[in-house]
Design a protein around this nucleic acid. Structure first.
Ligand SMILES: NC(=O)c1ccc[n+]([C@@H]2O[C@H](COP(=O)([O-])OP(=O)(O)OC[C@H]3O[C@@H](n4cnc5c(N)ncnc54)[C@H](O)[C@@H]3O)[C@@H](O)[C@H]2O)c1
Ligand SMILES: NC(=O)c1ccc[n+]([C@@H]2O[C@H](COP(=O)([O-])OP(=O)(O)OC[C@H]3O[C@@H](n4cnc5c(N)ncnc54)[C@H](O)[C@@H]3O)[C@@H](O)[C@H]2O)c1
Lengths: 251, 251
DNA sequence: AGGAGCTTGTGAACGTGAGAACAAAATCGG
DNA sequence: CCGATTTTGTTCTCACGTTCACAAGCTCCT
């Protein structure tokens, strides 16, 4: 509210260091590309190089980077190490974030075994499950602990990120417990829409949805003019016959 | 190119049954919400009900559904079963799609054990891995087969969707093999940017990126006015000193 | 039969994102 | 030291996505 109250069509009125969501979502990709270049011994890279490595258009990449500041050198390009550090700082992965995983079944085990976290700014501090048969099991150098310990762990380790890999049924309940315990960011793998209060960020990873999106495009590739234009299929009749149960869904 | 070549501000010139990507990405969510309502014995639901269940704004939901046709009844709402069928048909999950999974490590095992596919329009026809020690292992009612069998399997089972859960290193090579074998849609879990020819769709699921996006917002929540405005940090000096290795990244 | 009350489908306004294009800045060769 | 060359940072324009707001259409009650 300090400046830019004129509300003119001008530039999107980026709120004080506010970076567009679309850009935020690409920064990690750039970060990874830079790390790869760095590991390959490359010290300097142009926006074209980086864009290729990240799989985006170079104009977009330059504009994205311009939100962070002017970290390139005209006529030369970007210093790989320097830019990498700046992006890491902007994202917030120069420090380590403590993470808990709830629901150590198929997927939870896979995540627990995954080594790619530590190297990327995250530290798994606890594996939690409600099943007494699982509690105590060792996975790598960690041990599955009882979900009841959640609150104590969140407080002790200053956990701000929680990962939900329970079945869909208990996911909302688990989510509520996480939020109540003080977790303010949640990554959800369960196929449900979780509701959280303002101030809590939530992202979901949903395999079925990804596959269905692929299926849609796949169908259009093969189908094209194959299917009858609009099948005008089964019973639209059922509707008028119904006693109109409608209305009350959930809340 | 048939009609609407006037290029006027008018409606987005939806190409013959072309549904906006953003809408396609939400249809699976609606489908799931409808299935839940259906299982709950609800026969009719308003756009408001559906929107709540799907976690979106009701105007958006109505507009999304309007791309499929007019399947609702004014003053009443949508017939749950009927709409569910129409969406499933539009996405293409009234038929089953054959899927292969390549790379049966931590994540591949989890996916192989996951029961949520069959019920959603997908059928896993093969689990493939290059590691001879894994080949032959039974997972559920399937057996891990050698990656060399890929081409035969793709042809025999008309596989159009492939899932990559190998490490990042071999992912591009695996991807190329899949494409060469005839797979035209790929879901990639490896943290690399895969390049594919036109006509092949690719989607990625990237855990680290999701966590980093959460971290960014998390940092802004806690930080706000805590950090020094622009740390103006380390060596931008390094740049001018360098022999300017720049240029040749990859290709 | 006619009007009251809902709820859909969509037109229009607004906001965000992508990409082309170019001026400004830096290097390098002469 | 100057002009050619390279590559960034930014401006402008167009496309896409979201949300509001309301007329059209349906049901139900009187
Ligand atoms: N496995 C996959 O490949 C896969 C793929 C896509 C989506 N998913 C989704 O991910 C989630 C987990 O899948 P999975 O295959 O690992 O399931 P799973 O059944 O193997 O594991 C779920 C775990 O959660 C635990 N749990 C249940 N209720 C709990 C509670 N209230 N508090 C704490 N822990 C609890 C269970 O004890 C179990 O260990 C599911 O929602 C599933 O739909 C899984
Ligand atoms: N495990 C996780 O939770 C997790 C999380 C995020 C991302 N990922 C990514 O998913 C991928 C798989 O992870 P993971 O933990 O299951 O790894 P993993 O090492 O356990 O499994 C990889 C499997 O791929 C097989 N493989 C290797 N090269 C192959 C080839 N050329 N052809 C066929 N198969 C081949 C290996 O034999 C192995 O079985 C990785 O790219 C990883 O970065 C994993």
């Amino acid at each position: 509210m300090t400046r830019a109250s004129s509300r003119r069509p001008g530039p999107p009125t980026r709120t004080e260091r506010g970076i567009p969501e679309a850009t935020v979502a690409r920064l990690p990709v750039y970060l990874r590309a830079l790390t790869a270049l760095s590991d390959g011994g490359i010290a300097t890279a142009s926006s074209e190089d980086l864009a290729t490595a990240a799989g985006v258009n170079s104009a977009k990449l330059r504009k994205d980077l311009s939100y962070l500041g002017s970290y390139g050198t005209r006529g030369v390009g970007y210093d790989v190490e320097y830019l990498r550090y700046q992006i890491a700082r902007e994202i917030g992965v120069t420090q380590d974030w403590a993470v808990v995983i709830v629901g150590i079944g198929n997927l939870g085990h896979a995540l627990a075994n995954y080594s790619g976290f530590g190297t990327r700014g995250f530290r798994i501090v606890a594996l939690l499950d409600a099943d007494p048969n699982l509690v105590g099991e060792r996975i790598g150098d960690m041990e599955v602990r009882d979900f009841a310990e959640l609150e104590a762990i969140v407080e002790a380790d200053r956990v701000s990120i929680g990962v939900i890999t329970t079945p869909a049924g208990p996911a909302q309940e688990v989510c509520d417990r996480l939020v109540a315990a003080g977790v303010t960011s949640i990554l959800n793998f369960a196929p449900v829409v979780l509701s959280v209060p303002d101030g809590v960020d939530i992202r979901k990873v949903d395999l079925s949805i990804e596959l269905q999106i692929l299926a849609y495009h796949e169908q259009r590739k093969s189908g094209e003019a194959a299917l009858p234009q609009v099948p005008e299929l089964p019973a639209m009749n059922g509707l008028t016959d119904l006693p109109s149960v409608g209305g009350g869904v959930g809340a």
